[in-house]
Design a protein around this nucleic acid. Structure first.
Lengths: 143, 143
DNA sequence: ACAATTAGTCAGACTCTCTGACTAATCTGA
DNA sequence: TCAGATTAGTCAGAGAGTCTGACTAATTGT
């Protein structure tokens, strides 16, 4: 069947990457992060993010996000700092252990990038990335 | 930041499509399907599939899959038939209401395909699909 | 200054997913 | 051939994840 929807193919690529990252994180000792936690963690920005914004990006309610961030904080992956611009808000930042996990995750991501590049060739891999980027305005609610 | 991982871009495309399908299904009256149910339903083959195989493809335990299939069956989206080749097994098939929902979902998918094609152009859309297909052996555990 | 909005929290219910223990049918090899 | 191992599915219970609703405190706008 040649007529598989591109979105399904995208899903396969994403799922494969997520699986690999989770597996290798666990192997590297980060075996206390759940998938749900990782999906939230993944969206943390370098300079911190508010719970509400994080929730919106993760497509979760802020209560659900809070539940997961609490666990990430408990486990040392994340810390909350006061938001200097708003006393109600707090900025969720990557903490020490989170930084280490992030490094590990990036290595897996890079490995996958290399595998895909080796398979497609450098040109076509660049093309794929470019095409996906082009599609972004249509599919990314934050762009 | 130009260096977003292609897998993340893939995720955005998939999530957008899934969101759209779910929203328009709900609008068309199929508002009793949950996301978890839909993700299982999506994997049903024309000639039926066994619970165990469905579970493997959905990356769930067979107990979880059973839980969701039971609900889909209750709601008329799915029916179970005996498997002629194995008296232990049953084939999970698409039922009447499921057929209707599938039709609706396909229309949304086709609409998205058209939108993407309009945005990228016919050539580049074909190229994207081809590149994603090429990647499939690396990312699809069933290929 | 005060009403409306926004950021976050708390509590409780419901959905989803898992592990473990089980039955029945099928397969395998001595 | 037939007894043990495997496979397909089920049942029960626990745990994780997600939601809605009600709330407090800070900020914004008029």
């Amino acid at each position: 069947m040649a007529d598989v929807h591109p979105a399904l193919l995208m899903y396969l690529g994403y799922r494969h990457t997520e699986n690999r990252v989770m597996a290798e994180l666990a192997e590297a000792g980060f075996d206390d992060v759940t998938l749900a936690q990782a999906r939230v963690f993944q969206r943390l920005a370098e300079d911190g993010i508010r719970l509400t914004d994080l929730a919106e990006q993760a497509q979760l309610t802020k209560q659900s996000t809070q539940f997961l961030v609490d666990q990430l904080e408990q486990a040392g992956y994340v810390e909350r700092r006061p938001d200097p611009s708003d006393a109600r808000a707090r900025l969720i930042c990557i903490a020490e252990r989170g930084r280490e996990a992030q490094l590990q995750a990036r290595q897996v991501e890079n490995a996958i990038r290399r595998e895909w590049t080796r398979h497609l060739g450098k040109e076509r891999m660049a093309l794929l990335t470019e095409l996906l980027q082009d599609l972004r305005p249509l599919v990314d609610p934050f762009e």
